[in-house]
Amino acid sequence: MQFTGTENYIASRDLSIAVNAAIQLEKPLLIKGEPGTGKTLLAFEIAKALNKKLYTWHIKSTTSAQQGLYEYDAVSRLRDSQLGDEKINDISNYIIKGQLWEAFEADEQVVLLIDEIDKADIEFPNDLLLELDKMEFYCYETKKTIYAKHRPIIIITSNNEKELPDAFLRRCFFHYISFPDRETLKEIVNVHYDNLEEDLMQRAMDIFYKLRDKRGLKKKPSTSELIDWIKLLLVGKITTQELDEVKNMGTIPPYLGALLKNEQDKEIVVKGY
């Protein structure tokens, strides 16, 4: 069982090694990298490649670790008690299972994605230490310990908005997805558009890299932007001649909005031309 990327996802050698090592040693894999380099996508592709079910837990600024385990709906239990509902006698009726619980309880090994862990409160990763280490947790309400039947493959992504605590990092494998080089990027574009004209691609890449090299950009365009942009070029039936013009005459590239997501960035580019 080795992950080497899929037909839609080019995994570099170092990424596949990190993924396979994490799977074999049953440790969570922490993925960082520029936005748009395929961090979140990785979990989906691993699940697809290894034919496993995927559970996703998207973290928001208000998410607490407990929500991933379970939530106890005390309010509805109280309400039911006033209505004299029989359900209230069994507390487990009011336990809402979180993604972690679901993943632990699955009958076969699954992939669990904890997406954008840095969005949550600073203490959030610390609250998950035991859960990720031992793959078990205690449910106070039902007085039961939940064990993972099969340790799930855990992929954690971070956008670096907050630093993660050391104790948490110790338990993870780490991989930084760096921006792909030209060759890899070509491969990536190829898996998305398999019959793209070589000429068009060549020119699109030239323009793309030139944009990335522009100084002072707030958000450099990344892989996902390039893929969107090429789609627009195809839909808009932009010809290689037109792209040549952009390159040689220095006009503004078509559909610039797909590449740059920021007013000031656009201004920098427009001024530069």
Binding site: R13, D14, I17, A18, A21, A22, L29, L30, K32, D166, L169, R170, C172, F173, F174, H175, Y176
Partner: peptide, 12 residues
């Protein structure tokens, strides 16, 4: 190198 990097280094 790739393996040791992903195990020993935890921050870019």
């Amino acid at each position: 190198y790739f393996l040791s990097r992903s195990i020993l280094v935890k921050s870019e």
